[in-house]
Computed example of a mutant assay.
Amino acid sequence: MATGKDRQKQLAREHHERQMQRRLEREQRNKRTAIIGSTVGVVVVVGGIVAAVAVLGGGSDPATEAASTPTASAPQDTAAAAAQPKPYDPATGTCGYVADTAGGQVKDVGMPPAEVKLKPATKTMTLKTNQGDIVVELDNAKAPCTVNSLEHLAGKGFYDGSKCHRLGSEKFPMLQCGDPTAKADGKAAGDGSGGPGYVMVEENLEGATYKRGVMAMAKTQAPGSTGSQFFLVFGDIGLTPDYTPVGTITKGLDILDKVNKAGVIGDSGDGTGAPKETVEIKDVTISGKS
Rank of each mutant, 00 (worst) to 15 (best):
G192S: 12
G192L: 14
S193A: 15
S193V: 03
S193P: 04
S193C: 12
G194S: 08
G194C: 11
G194W: 00
G195A: 07
P196Q: 03
P196M: 01
Y198H: 07
Y198G: 00
Y198T: 00
V199M: 04
V199D: 02
V199C: 11
M200Y: 00
M200L: 07
V201G: 07
V201A: 14
E202L: 14
E203Q: 10
E203K: 09
E203V: 04
N204K: 04
L205S: 04
L205Q: 01
L205A: 08
E206T: 09
E206R: 07
T209M: 07
T209P: 03
T209D: 02
Y210S: 10
Y210K: 07
R212T: 02
R212L: 08
R212E: 06
G213A: 10
V214S: 05
M215Q: 05
M215C: 07
M217C: 07
A218V: 01
A218L: 06
K219C: 08
K219P: 02
T220L: 10
T220S: 15
T220M: 09
Q221K: 04
Q221P: 00
Q221H: 02
Q221L: 05
Q221T: 01
A222T: 03
A222R: 05
P223T: 12
P223A: 15
G224N: 08
S225I: 01
G227P: 00
G227Q: 06
G227D: 07
G227T: 07
G227A: 14
S228L: 10
S228R: 06
Q229D: 07
F230I: 12
F230S: 12
F231L: 12
F231V: 09
L232D: 01
L232T: 02
L232M: 12
L232A: 10
F234I: 14
F234C: 15
G235R: 03
G235S: 05
G235A: 10
D236T: 07
D236V: 05
I237V: 12
G238H: 13
L239K: 03
L239E: 01
T240V: 14
T240G: 15
T240Y: 11
P241I: 06
P241G: 11
D242F: 02
D242K: 05
D242M: 02
D242C: 04
D242E: 01
Y243G: 14
Y243M: 15
T244N: 01
P245M: 14
P245G: 15
P245W: 11
V246S: 15
V246K: 12
G247W: 13
G247D: 13
I249P: 05
I249E: 07
T250I: 15
T250G: 15
T250A: 15
K251H: 10
K251Y: 09
G252M: 14
L253E: 13
L256F: 10
D257T: 08
D257C: 13
K258R: 08
K258Y: 03
K258C: 09
K258E: 06
K258A: 14
V259E: 05
N260F: 10
N260S: 13
K261G: 06
A262R: 01
G263R: 00
V264T: 11
V264E: 02
I265T: 12
I265L: 15
G266W: 06
D267E: 03
D267L: 12
S268V: 10
S268H: 08
S268C: 12
G269F: 14
G269V: 13
G269T: 09
D270K: 13
